[in-house]
Design a protein around this nucleic acid. Structure first.
Lengths: 184, 184
DNA sequence: AATTTCATGTAACCAGTTACATGATTCA
DNA sequence: TGAATCATGTAACTGGTTACATGAAATT
């Protein structure tokens, strides 16, 4: 459990995908294999136990589609509880901790916002996201100024990589903000 | 074990730091807490077991500094085996898989290259890194072209985030390459 | 006198990894 | 007919998380 709402990154990906259409474990596996959707293991040893946990927690519900077969195809869809949990998870505000430790998950959250939340929530997310990544980029720059004299060239470059990463995120969120405002 | 040479990302960080100067578990904890060195847990429950594993594997060696105290201060330094293992780990070539699944670890590798490897190795690393991130950026663009009609605005933006990330990495590695060539 | 810092560890838990297993159906 | 795909699962292992524990030394 990576955060207060109790969804791991993999669980979020699963719940988010299932929120769009009913899916079996195998469907999820294929999405993780064939699309650049975050980077998740497509191993059955991760997916099926995760589905079982979410099912036990009442967030998703599996419907048997071919009861006669040896391995009945189990198509999962979101329950009302699941839809609410997803909404709450996505609506959490963006903290410094989030962008430092779970940046990729933040993008995953953002990807699932429509139609789970209202458009205004995506905008709010982007503004908060921008503030945090921009703030952290400044922190990193200040740190570089302090330490670069004692650093090897590679170490300086590695830290500059971090700065460039957060600046790229700041730029992206600004662009995204414009696109969302323009679009509606 | 995340890759063929058997070092997890945390182990690499520990071995890399210890290669620069002898360090205790507490020293490592402070580095992880106070500097933006990758993003590692500063929890003793991760660090001390990792030190023990590395010690058992013969990569590092702990020297008791204050035997009289209740908690003797254990300063670790690299063994010859450890130095060799670090060198081999850092000298691995960069694969597509690496930049897709372990990009942050690649930067960590790069940061420790001096003085563990010769400068030429850093240059080779950057060239390979550039090829892979650039290639993957192109893959992502092609994917976006294929799927964007069926995507929500947020999903398109999330994928564009991925593209921007790999383009930023391509730019960074080009800049880094120039700096290393110029500098020596 | 009280709090923070130094310093190392353990225990319970949990999620993800690799590898294995089964067998029907579809395709070359 | 042999291989690939569909489809779901289990078992052993591993490493990281959170929380707890201890107690000396330094600082406020």
């Amino acid at each position: 459990m990576k955060n207060q709402s109790g969804l791991t990154t993999l669980s979020l990906a699963i719940v988010g995908l299932i929120s769009q259409r009913a899916m079996t474990g195998y469907d999820l596996k294929k999405v993780f294999e064939e699309t650049p959707m975050g980077h998740f293991s497509s191993s059955p040893g991760a997916i099926y136990p995760a589905l079982e946990r979410l099912s036990k927690a009442g967030l998703i519900d599996g419907e048997v589609e071919s009861a006669h077969a040896l391995r009945p195809r189990l198509a999962y869809r979101l329950t009302d509880i699941g839809r609410e949990a997803l909404g709450k998870h996505l609506a959490q505000s963006v903290t410094r901790r989030d962008v430092v430790w779970n940046l990729e998950e933040m993008i995953l959250r953002f990807a699932f916002m429509t139609p789970a939340l209202r458009r205004g929530e995506s905008v709010r997310f982007l503004k908060e996201f921008y503030n945090e990544v921009n703030g952290y980029a400044k922190e990193l720059k200040a740190h570089l100024d302090r330490v670069q004299d004692s650093f090897t060239e590679e170490q300086s470059l590695a830290l500059e990589h971090g700065i460039a990463k957060y600046e790229m995120n700041a730029n992206w969120s600004q662009r995204a903000l414009k696109r969302l405002s323009r679009g509606k």
